[in-house]
Nucleic acid binder design. Structure first.
Ligand SMILES: [Mn+2]
Ligand SMILES: [Mn+2]
Ligand SMILES: [Zn+2]
Ligand SMILES: [Zn+2]
Lengths: 138, 138
DNA sequence: CAATAAATGCACTTCCTTTGCATTGATTAT
DNA sequence: ATAATCAATGCAAAGGAAGTGCATTTATTG
């Protein structure tokens, strides 16, 4: 079990107070977060720093971006050892139409999708929308 | 074979010059278009009119919105007789990472996606990214 | 032709994302 | 230890797309 410091260093980025805080915030959240969510959590920090931090995390495969159709990009921590490769790491995302939250269903890999001749599939974005487990009352 | 005029009337919206032009533009394009694409095609027309026209088309199931992950919403004509119902009309979309164009693969319906217990699926957005037939040189 | 309703055009707003540049803080070389 | 170098942060401003209010034009109806 790596510490956060060790993880950041292993990804080749420097350990700073802000990065530790944001990483910790992401681990505690069980859902994908928008930049404004992080802003609200750290209202003393500058928005630009948060933005650049999350972009750095994204480049280093620490978080992945999620486009759930709300028009606002969200971010969530990658699984341990994730390299954001298609075969192994691509999972589906669920967006709740009731609470408006989006979660990673990391154990649900995306099925093979057939495309017509001449098309080459490199990547798949799959978002299921509906009612989440918390909101379905079960 | 309906004329465009007949089609618009059958959907319960009035025939105007602008609507005819935009509809014609959409039929000629074989790909999903952004609002700015329409703007560029009709630079004498006001952006708001184009915006409201496409929104009217959307309400009347003449076009459907596509979220291909580029952050910009695109629109494409619905199939003949489409009611934008999940079961029958939901197809997958292909976004080319090379030419940046997005096409409807209307004959490719979205497979049934399993979600965990407690989750209720109402809708699915599936976008495959890769290289399109034109760009794959085949 | 007059009254009414819809469509269009212009201006403005909001929200999110991104960038430039100065400043602060940390790392490395002398 | 000090200076030089580079990365991280903070502040300001820009950009892009989506949406709204209201006046004006155009079409429809009585
Ligand atoms: Mn995810
Ligand atoms: Mn389509
Ligand atoms: Zn929910
Ligand atoms: Zn292409």
């Amino acid at each position: 079990m790596k510490t956060i410091e060790e993880l950041l260093e292993s990804k080749g980025i420097r350990v700073t107070a802000m990065r530790l805080l944001i990483y910790k915030f992401l681990t505690e959240k069980q859902v994908a977060v928008r930049l404004s969510d992080i802003e609200n959590a750290f209202d003393k920090a500058d928005r630009t720093t948060l933005y650049r931090t999350i972009k750095t995390f994204e480049e280093k495969d620490i978080v992945h971006q999620i486009d759930d159709g709300t028009g606002i990009t969200k971010y969530a921590l990658c699984e341990n050892g994730c390299t954001c490769e298609i075969e192994t790491d691509l999972h589906l995302h669920f967006h709740c139409n009731n609470c408006n939250e989006t979660v990673c269903l990391t154990e649900h890999k995306i099925p093979q999708i057939k495309v017509p001749d001449g098309f080459v599939s490199e990547n798949v974005n799959l978002v299921v929308k509906g009612i989440c487990d918390k909101c379905s009352g079960q």
